[in-house]
Simulated assay, not measured.
Amino acid sequence: MRKAEVAENLNRVRERVVTSCAACGRDPGGVTLLAVSKTRPAGDLRAAYAAGQRYFGENYLQEALAKQAELEDLDICWHFIGPLQSNKTRAVAEQFHWLHSVERLKIAQRLSAQRPADMPPLNICLQVNIDDEESKSGLAPAGIPELAAAVAGLPNLKLRGLMAIPAPRDTVEEQRRPFAQLANLLQRLRAQLPDQPLDTLSMGMSGDMEVAIECGATIVRIGTDIFGRRETKID
């Protein structure tokens, strides 16, 4: 994708964030735009960086590590947002700033043990399967309080909040329901774990970003509306 096109797309998405925040009385500074760059070549990420983007989300580990090596001259904040297998935790613990997709205590324990001592704690979101879809990762809402309490006790992790990928909906009213449910779940976790910095709702993508912001999203994960239609996975 041309550098100018990436910049234009980013500006349009940023304008949507500002407009959405204004509509619901929120400060746009409270919403982080995460550019979902899976399957995109490093040149597209470099173009987005040149246009001011600093936060990038990757789903496929080997692809992400290759891009990190190619873009090591850039001050990027790397988020891993895909499912994570036990045999890949070390690379995430060593190379990423955030992980959005924790759904098992075993994974969290490995990440904490493998996080280098000279790095700050790894920021963690627990992934909620908000619609109980068999095809999606994540824990049922009922299991989140127990997992959150266990993760909060791990020394090299910082529990920040929740992530979800709701099923597509046809109307705004239908889109609002799972986002509101996730926001309510975070509020309950704050009461349960008052000493934790539970400040993050990672929810909302290109097609439902506005509703997610209305419901309290602090990170919106946008891929298509920044980089265009997804290319073939290269991992």
Rank of each mutant, 00 (worst) to 15 (best):
K106H: 10
P83F: 01
Q114I: 04
N129D: 12
R110H: 12
L74T: 00
R104K: 13
E63H: 04
F96W: 09
M1W: 14
I213Q: 01
E72N: 15
T218R: 11
R16I: 08
E5S: 11
V220N: 03
D132G: 06
G204R: 07
N156F: 08
E173V: 03
I124E: 07
L99F: 15
L71R: 07
V220S: 03
L186I: 08
A35F: 10
E5H: 09
A64H: 10
G204W: 03
L84D: 04
E146Q: 13
S101P: 03
L193K: 04
G57L: 12
D131K: 00
P145Y: 09
N9F: 14
I107F: 06
Y49W: 08
A117I: 13
P41C: 13
V13Q: 02
A47N: 09
M209A: 05
L45V: 13
L189C: 05
I130E: 02
L65M: 10
M163G: 06
K106T: 12
K136A: 04
V31R: 01
Q114S: 02
V128M: 00
R190D: 06
G216F: 02
N123Y: 14
W98L: 06
L157R: 05
R169D: 04
D131W: 05
R40P: 07
L34Y: 09
A48K: 06
C21L: 04
P121A: 12
A142Y: 05
V36N: 05
A91S: 13
E103Q: 11
N184S: 10
L139S: 12
T171R: 03
P197Q: 00
A7V: 09
A164E: 01
L147P: 06
Q85G: 02
A217F: 02
I76P: 01
S101N: 10
A22G: 03
A108S: 06
L182F: 00
L147D: 03
D44L: 10
E94W: 10
G138N: 06
T218L: 04
V172H: 11
P83V: 10
S101K: 04
P178M: 03
P28E: 08
L105F: 12
L34V: 15
C21N: 11
P41E: 02
C77A: 12
W78K: 02
L193H: 11
T89R: 15
L34P: 05
S112D: 05
R115L: 06
R104E: 10
H100G: 10
L139W: 08
A22Q: 15
T19D: 14
D195G: 13
A180L: 01
P116A: 04
L147I: 10
A23L: 15
T232I: 13
A64D: 09
T39C: 09
S37R: 06
A23N: 05
A93Y: 04
V13R: 07
F227W: 08
A183D: 02
